[in-house]
Design a protein around this nucleic acid. Structure first.
Lengths: 364, 364
DNA sequence: CTGTTAGCGCATTCAT
DNA sequence: ATGAATGCGCTAACAG
């Protein structure tokens, strides 16, 4: 693969009639010891030759690449996009680059880490989300820590409470606040469709969101009806089936829930479909709050009342934690951070707080 | 930033009691000239020291980095994710890495190109989608071509018909086939909500999709009612307003469309809301087909009949075109490819072809 | 078959 | 203030 012979620092030096070290000085801002005249000559030569220093060569001698590796899994769905954009937003002005690695399983993650270490990346941000049994191990992360390679982990279930820089979302709180919101709207019979509680390894968000729901109910001495706790497997189909079961149950009994907390947006879509085809209107017959706030949540009818992930915050904070480590002379001196971020509520139609359909201003 | 002193090829050589070049030979598969015994010693030493060759150093001498830069804009929405995953799928087994750059505007794109060129990336894939007036220039792409740096462009509107490797989607065809599908279902009065036709620079997909709609109608000598051509600005709000106008119009006149082609999914959501609140049922009162197939399209009610972007194909083809260039000794010898891919239809409820609500198998 | 050597492009002493 | 020399870790050409 012939590539244009790139212009090097030597070419610049020659054209400017100075030595290469002078050119280097000028380019790296160590202007202090370089005379006006020569500096101008250098700058002119750089301009004339369209010279761009070879980052590879620079990296080799400086022993840093100013790039960070970002590891993601497709399981993260579209959640990672805003995070990556935030990371880029912070890192780019500082001259850092981003290498993205999509790592569907732990093996490929380990692989990717090795590759990026060989590429001499300065640090990592992990947004790789593992759920399957065999892929739960995280010792390679511990290994990274031993090697004193800076990294931050976002929303990742870990085997134990490793002492790592990590950012989590407050799953308990979102369940609690969502339910609380329904209670404040006057509901006393509140069901839930949750994620898989029997998952191995334990699916933290599923458990915590449900626990939040439960505690909100108990706090108000509201009845907890076992049949109103459904497992929707975190999936669209699961949510549909769970809602069907709920409907079947309340056809037999007289009493029925007037509100429901659905632990993610996929299940919410499934539940909505089940309700719709059974003639159960949302929010009129049953109010609904869910977690996860894709763009379409606001565009459906009813528009979904949701809790959105604090993605931007996560991105910013992760990046800054990483930068702290990158800039400190030794990794160990910077203290380990374990940050928990709150979800943000978006009140829309499905919870019944906004009774009238939202019209656009131009039609109001 | 003190980093663990990495183990070098020299350490391996010393431990294995051979010269560094022997180690290099072994590691690069040029085993042919190395004796069994020494090779084993080398391998053992590599293992013992957990040696990983420094990719940076290797890149410097080989003058290739085995990484490609991928440029995206957030405007691409979530479309780019499957594409990137496909690219990774192809490239990773070949030892290539991916550097991702999110470039919101042309300036940052040019900037990113410079940076990645300095990083010595071997090639580029552009999925950066420009629409605003000032950001339409593409001479920096021509510049890349002059420099003989391999790159491929996916779904990008260009000023002129530059002779570049590019992959496009068949916008005309999707409009034509969508309308044809409605015609085949017996509809003769078909409206459309399109994207902005007055956009500067011209928004190709908006124009082409509408042209496809028009040609399908004309082909069957169906009436083209001016009031049934609405501009939905490609947005949710725009789709909502466009549908409202349509509704207003047919309240005055007797005749009304029985089907509608909506040029993207955002407008489709807006239109659905408008229809819903006016008591117009989809597909019973009006059949709807749209372009763009996010996961929720299949989960709504009615589930949307859509045309999905051939994202995986685009990713694979782009990557292979790039690889061809990367592997050929000179870029010029490989012929320029201009590929147009078809959208794929997904027949669901909104077009009325599936009259009954889709139930899940377990309930059938 | 194996070891020695010369760079890759740059930053950085260390002399001058 | 400036330039010559050294080396980052590795590959490849060449000499043995």
């Amino acid at each position: 693969m012939m590539r244009r012979k790139s212009v090097t620092i030597r070419d610049v030096a020659q054209l400017a009639q100075v030595s290469i070290s002078t050119v280097s000085q000028v380019l790296n801002g160590n202007n202090q010891y370089v005379g006006e005249a020569k500096r101008d000559r250098v700058l002119a030569a750089v301009q004339a030759l369209q010279y761009r220093p070879n980052a590879i060569a620079r990296s080799m001698v400086k022993r840093r690449t100013a790039t960070v590796g970002i590891m993601i899994t497709s399981v993260m769905g579209n959640l990672f996009i805003p995070i990556v954009e935030c990371i880029q937003e912070v890192l780019h002005p500082l001259g850092y680059n981003i290498i993205l690695a999509s790592t569907p399983d732990v093996e490929s993650e380990i692989q990717a880490i090795e590759t990026l270490k060989a590429q001499q990346v300065d640090g990592f941000i992990f947004m790789s989300f593992r759920s399957s049994r065999s892929q739960y191990r995280s010792d390679h992360l511990l290994h990274l820590k031993e090697e004193e390679i800076p990294f931050v982990v976002i929303n990742r279930p870990l085997e134990k409470d490793y002492d790592l820089n990590q950012i989590q979302f407050n799953e308990w709180e979102t369940g609690y606040l969502a339910t609380k919101h329904l209670i404040n709207l006057g509901h006393t019979s509140i069901a839930t469709i949750g994620g898989p509680l029997d998952h191995v390894p334990p699916w933290r968000s599923a458990m915590e969101r449900q626990r939040g729901w439960l505690e909100a109910l108990k706090e108000q001495d509201l009845e907890v009806v076992p049949e109103w706790i459904c497992d929707g497997r975190y999936s669209y189909e699961g949510g549909y089936k769970a809602a069907q079961q709920l409907l079947k149950h309340w056809e037999k009994e007289q009493r029925r829930p007037t509100a429901i907390f659905v632990a993610n947006e996929h299940m919410a879509l499934g539940a909505l479909r089940a309700f719709y085809y059974h003639g159960v209107r949302v929010p009129h017959d049953i109010a609904l709050v869910t977690v996860g706030d894709p763009a379409y949540a606001a565009h459906m009818f009813p528009a979904l009342t949701t809790f959105s992930h604090p993605l931007k915050e996560a991105g910013h904070i992760a990046t800054h934690i990483l930068l702290d480590q990158l800039h400190s002379s030794d990794t160990l001196s910077t203290s380990i951070q374990n940050i928990v971020l709150s979800y943000q509520m978006h009140i829309r139609e499905s919870c019944g707080a906004i009774p009238e359909p939202i019209e656009f201003r131009s039609n109001a």
